[in-house]
Design a protein around this nucleic acid. Sequence first.
DNA 1: GTTAGCACTCGCGGATCGAGACTGCCAATA
DNA 2: TATTGGCAGTCTCGATCCGCGAGTGCTAAC
Lengths: 345, 345
Amino acid sequence: MEATPLDERKQQILKAVVADYTVTGVPVGSQVLAAKYFIALSSATIRNELADLVGTGYLQQPHTSAGRVPTDRGYRYFVDFLMDPEATSPTVRRTVKQAFETAPHSVEGILEKAAMVLAQITENVSLVTAPETSEARIKHIDLVSLESQSVLIILVLEGNLIKQTVIRLERATSQDDLSRMAAMLNRKVKGQTADELRSRLNQLGPDRDEQRQILERVIESISTHQAQRQSVVLHDGVRNLLRHPEFVEVNRLEELLELLEQGAQLAGILQQVAFDKDVEIIIGRENTSSGLRECSLVLTTYKMDERVRGTIGVIGPTRMHYGQVVARVRLVSQATSELLGPLSN
Amino acid sequence: MEATPLDERKQQILKAVVADYTVTGVPVGSQVLAAKYFIALSSATIRNELADLVGTGYLQQPHTSAGRVPTDRGYRYFVDFLMDPEATSPTVRRTVKQAFETAPHSVEGILEKAAMVLAQITENVSLVTAPETSEARIKHIDLVSLESQSVLIILVLEGNLIKQTVIRLERATSQDDLSRMAAMLNRKVKGQTADELRSRLNQLGPDRDEQRQILERVIESISTHQAQRQSVVLHDGVRNLLRHPEFVEVNRLEELLELLEQGAQLAGILQQVAFDKDVEIIIGRENTSSGLRECSLVLTTYKMDERVRGTIGVIGPTRMHYGQVVARVRLVSQATSELLGPLSN
DNA sequence: GTTAGCACTCGCGGATCGAGACTGCCAATA
DNA sequence: TATTGGCAGTCTCGATCCGCGAGTGCTAAC
């Protein structure tokens, strides 16, 4: 499997195989290629080229007398060098626009809509990670008295992202006292990030024990990456997978669902997406996770306030229309970023 | 299909058929019944009884020379009259207990955990509706200044349920003014429900226009039953369905997933659950929704502060172990109610 | 009312077979 | 040397067939 540079014609043939296979789902043979894509060539010539492409590992045959199918390596070559940039159709753009029009003014709401519409227009499963909050600015803090010594801390972060946590104080404190304390805290922490706050924590005198306790809890609640949610990753569109013939075998689906519903492992994978790239594509066995052996991921990031905050993308069968999916993932990512921007205020 | 009262032996045979079929998944024949459940009787006698039960619509045969399978009517008779009350095993109770130990102090967190553990112990899909909030007491209200004229309203309801909404004021208002207004509103609305608030709205003088505007929005945001969420219903455990042989046909699964992912229709069904019953079971075609023709629902309610607030239950294939599922749904419902109680404070 | 016996029905799994699709190879060609 | 037509060979897929086994319904005897 040495890195064989492909000559022009082999490239065109590989491209045609990928194109045809992604549409039909049937192994594509030399005659079809000659008839549909290479009228100037005979099927025999193409057969020779196909044999070479199999030899170099870009194509494979399900069995001796079948057409050819791209290998993971073939798809990789395709997306790296052969894929044409595709524009999104006006219909799709309108769908996205309309979906976001009804989105509420909160990060969660917008991301949920994004997951929904992305699943819809790509006909795959969409993935969206919750935004990274460790460097999100604090907008507002509020303390609400519950029972005697319990206090509910409410935290509003950039993007109207709300975090809540309950803390027990050492002595009973009235709501009035809490309100005063909240006002004081607000002056101190407004506009800061959790990281900044942490480094400043020691500047508080030892007499401010309660404030310190609260702030520690605030930092913790921002940093824990909302571990309370069963899954850090939103997803939508599992129903779409059932329409793909590669999932009639229920086992694959089960592995995938497990991954989606428990979320932790998936979160790890998404975390590793290189933030410098435009769109990252992970194909088949390139995935470390065994449940994704026959799947591909098309991922990119979304921004808030010019900073990358999370990952958004889709997961689908290896045989997908990469050009189109890339374009649509990019579209939704941009639209999401645009909507999130103003929220950071 | 007149309502035929079944004599004792027919009842026992029906019960045995249901018991055996739910375990094996294979149509059960007269010989198996004679050998496993009725050693005193011959298979011929049982055949006669079986024929009667088919005639009266409690059983059916997949084809002429196959064993018998319960009809929806058969299951109905079983759950209404024949089902033995089952106790939950200590293992299961421990699982539930442990799951809830890590739950956060918020309604959403607890309900999410409930959905998770219920899916796990019943090996089906769990359903949990969000709590009815129109008669939930308001605990706290807070106003946060965003840009010039935008204000974020934060609302803490009973059970630390937080609602947020953004409103535009007619004139710019400073955070200090907003804080004052929030303090005033807090005195007015604390401990009230949205319904109560609505009826009192007219008592506000015309000079309090801004307050009125905010309160209207507060009421709206409580009452809209969080229409912003894509789905009012939490669910978990779709992966479990794939283990049931009845879902190898992918079509059924697709219909069901559609129902789960869009949520609206499902929410309608759950809303209609009679709140007076203990546990409600809906079997197969008793469902109005076509996607549920081959499924059964086992539903009950959960309470907060002694009042029924939402629905919790599972959805699975008609062929399920009703006794066990009922016991486990009830267990989780009780545990959930117990955890939610103290939160209402 | 119950039972043994028996003929009958039907689904399921395995074996068989032919059609069709595609290949690889070879010899001819430009 | 690259390309091409021809051809034999391979393999899958679907249809058909067949026998086994499970289970039934009926009848006659108890």
